[in-house]
C-alpha cells in the first residue's frame, strides 16, 4: 500500500523469476500488468546485454501503455561494476524507459523504484491513457475508489540479494 496524491494505491507485485521456461506464463504476466521493472545486474554485463530481448518480449505481450522501469541492481557493489550508469541511462533514453540504479541489499532506491513506477502509472491514469474500467490493463478501482495496480517485477540475473523482497 502506498499513497500517491492522497490516494491509497495498492501494488500487486508479481515476479516472473523461475518461470521463464514457460512462455505462456511470462506472456500472461506481461499482459495483466500496468507496469514492469526490468532488472539487470550492474556487475554482470550479460544481464545488460539481454535487455533488448526482454524488452522486446515485454513490449510485444503487454499493453502498449505499460510503464517500464529499467533497474540496474546491486549498486552497492561499485567495485565489481561492469555496466556504467551512463550506459543504463542511454539504453533507457533510447527505448523510452525510466532508469534507476538500486541496491536490494542496502534497500537503496528499492522503494523509490516501485513508487516511481506507481506514480508513472497513476499519471497515465490521470491522463486517461489507461482504461481503468478494463481489468486487463492491470488496474482495478478499489472499493473506496482507491486504485489497485498490478505491477510486476520481471527480474533477471541473480536477484536474490536481500531475501523476501519482491
Amino acid at each position: 500500500m502506498i499513497t500517491i496524491d492522497g490516494k491509497q494505491i495498492k501494488l500487486q507485485i508479481w515476479d516472473t523469476a523461475g518461470q521463464e521456461s514457460f512462455r505462456s506464463i511470462t506472456r500472461s504476466y506481461y499482459r495483466g500488468a500496468a507496469g514492469a521493472l526490468l532488472v539487470y545486474d550492474i556487475t554482470r554485463r550479460d544481464t545488460f546485454n539481454h535487455l533488448t530481448t526482454w524488452l522486446e518480449d515485454a513490449r510485444q505481450h503487454s499493453n502498449s501503455n505499460m510503464v517500464i522501469m529499467l533497474i540496474g541492481n546491486k549498486s552497492d557493489l561499485e567495485s565489481r561494476r561492469e555496466v556504467k550508469k551512463e550506459e543504463g541511462e542511454a539504453f533507457a533514453r533510447e527505448h523510452g524507459l525510466i532508469f534507476m540504479e538500486t541496491s536490494a541489499k542496502t534497500a537503496s532506491n528499492v522503494e523509490e523504484a516501485f513508487i516511481n513506477t506507481a506514480k508513472e502509472i497513476y499519471e497515465k491514469i490521470q491522463e486517461g491513457v489507461f482504461d481503468i474500467n478494463n481489468e486487463a490493463n492491470g488496474i482495478k478501482i478499489g472499493p473506496q475508489h482507491a486504485a489497485t495496480n498490478a505491477t510486476h517485477a520481471g527480474s533477471q540475473g541473480g536477484q536474490q540479494a536481500g531475501g523476501g523482497c519482491c
Partner: peptide, 14 residues
C-alpha cells in the same frame, strides 16, 4: 504487502 516485504529486508540486515 510492499511495506511488509521491506521490513523483511530491513530485519534481515539490521
Amino acid at each position: 504487502m510492499f511495506g511488509r516485504s521491506r521490513s523483511w529486508v530491513g530485519g534481515g540486515h539490521g
